Simulated assay, not measured.
Amino acid sequence: GSPAIWMPGLAGLVLLAGFVWRQRQVADPILPLDLFRSRNFSAGNLSTLFIYAALALNGFVLAVYLQQGAGLSATLAGLASLPSTLLMIALSSRIGTLVGRWGPRLFMTAGPLIMSVGALLLLLVADDFDYWWQVLPGMVVFGLGLALTVSPLTSTILGAADPERSGIASAVNNAVARVAGLLPIAALAAITGGALDLAGFHRAAVTTAALLIVGGLVSLLGIRNPRRSSSDASGGDAEGVAHPAAEPPGP
């Protein structure tokens, strides 16, 4: 209820509305709004909003709780999520190939849902802390879902725009991901109940899972697999989907 909270939020919404209005009026807009007429572009960015909010929340809460709650050093707390990163590096290229064959919808739906299971596995964390049984399983499952998600998410959004607009399409997706990462951190006190103790950590894990489930459902309902050309039947890439495995638009 503090004016220091709601007034900047309200001002931001007004400025956002003004920006959109201005982009509709000018001949050469910074952000061509007709990009959002593409179903895959709009749905992909909406899915990005939920998925990257979940990634930011999970990464921040895990790193802080493992230090303050579990008593790990900063280095060990940082290394705790390394299995997820390694799995993404190892599998993203292969996933990119499969996306070219089967389309992105399956992966953009299944990936976040699998990550939500990984987030819920963090509910195993207890006062009697044991990384190997309480955190590692969740990190492995989370990493598998992340590998399924990142490459098709990025390539679908870029593939939904004309080649000459790939730069602005990437910039929009990057901006959405950055904003998504800020929102749950700003709301962290409300999410955790005011303290990042074990109960707060569990609340954050459930919230992370909920965001990922919504992101997966948005992909299920909104993403459409591009049409396949005749060359695709022999194993080529799906039309309109960038083939190489892409990095997420942020850390």
Rank of each mutant, 00 (worst) to 15 (best):
G181L: 12
L10G: 06
A242G: 01
Q67L: 08
L57Q: 09
S151R: 07
I89V: 15
S93F: 12
T149K: 06
L57R: 12
Y65S: 06
A126H: 08
T156H: 14
E247Y: 10
R105A: 02
P29R: 08
A161Q: 10
A205L: 06
P137L: 07
G167T: 12
S219R: 02
G194T: 08
T156S: 15
S116W: 03
L120F: 08
G118K: 06
A238S: 14
R24K: 14
L98D: 00
V176G: 04
V141W: 09
S2T: 00
V61C: 02
L124E: 07
F201D: 10
A161G: 04
R227M: 06
P249L: 07
A119R: 04
L79Q: 15
W6D: 01
A77M: 14
Q67F: 07
A80P: 03
G44T: 09
G216R: 13
M108Q: 10
Y52M: 15
W132F: 09
A54R: 14
S116L: 02
I30K: 09
V206P: 06
D232G: 04
P29N: 04
A199S: 13
L79G: 13
W102S: 05
P251R: 08
R101S: 01
V61Q: 00
P248K: 11
Q134L: 07
F129T: 12
M88E: 02
L46S: 07
A160G: 02
V135F: 09
G59Y: 13
T192S: 13
G59F: 14
D34H: 14
L33C: 10
F60N: 10
S230I: 04
M7R: 12
G240P: 00
A54K: 14
Q134A: 03
M108Y: 05
L144M: 07
S2M: 13
G145F: 14
S47C: 11
G222I: 02
A147R: 12
G200V: 11
V64W: 05
G181I: 11
I191T: 09
L13P: 00
V241R: 01
A56E: 06
M7Y: 08
A242D: 01
S151G: 04
A4I: 00
L144A: 00
S151E: 05
G235N: 12
T85C: 00
L196N: 01
V135L: 09
G159K: 13
D232W: 14
F36V: 08
A119I: 07
Y131M: 02
A53G: 15
A77K: 08
D28A: 15
L221C: 03
L31F: 15
V99Y: 07
W132K: 00
L79I: 15
V172D: 03
L76G: 06
N40F: 14
T109F: 15
Y52E: 10
A77W: 07
L198H: 05
P8D: 05
G143P: 08
G235V: 13
R228G: 09
I185V: 15
V99G: 06
D127P: 05
G159Q: 11
